[in-house]
């Protein structure tokens, strides 16, 4: 297990995803209003490139004819079969107990702290002034 700097915090705008490859793994890093999450770019349902899917809200209903959107921009919809995953937990919405997208631990850390190490910043020159997204893998 090591920790890798994958982006500056401002690289990933709220509501967007940045694709990175760390140790040969394809990963999507998501920014949900300042909270960062990392999911493997592989759908646990049928292997689709999950992180290339749309970032969507959850559509909920109390019954026919009543609809509301909840949790805006917090779900990821697989580009193949449309399975929806909670970006915060990796859980599948329709089969939460047994299907889960692989998650990785993400932290945002100030450059000042990172330059001291022991973190690996393979592709990012780290400066003191920036905040960085660090993935544990």
């Amino acid at each position: 297990m090591s920790r890798q700097v994958v982006a500056t915090a401002r690289d990933i705008a709220p509501g967007t995803c940045k694709h990175v490859t760390v140790k040969g793994r394809d990963i999507g890093i998501f920014n949900l209003d300042g909270d960062y999450f990392a999911l493997a770019d592989r759908c646990p349902h049928a292997g689709g490139p999950l992180c290339k899917g749309n970032i969507v809200a959850l559509v909920q209903s109390d019954g026919p004819g009543h609809y509301r959107l909840a949790r805006h921009q917090e779900f990821l919809r697989c580009p193949w079969h449309g399975w929806e995953f909670d970006i915060r937990t990796g859980q599948s919405w329709c089969d939460p107990t047994s299907v889960r997208a692989r998650q990785f631990q993400v932290t945002v850390e100030p450059g000042e702290q990172l330059v001291k190490g022991p973190y690996v910043a393979e592709t990012f020159p780290v400066s003191l002034e920036e905040d960085y997204v660090v993935v544990e893998i």
Binding site: G48, P49, K52, G53, N54, R77, P79, W80, G82
Partner: peptide
Amino acid sequence: RMTASGMRVD
């Protein structure tokens, strides 16, 4: 049809 007019988004 689902996303992208029935196509794989990728």
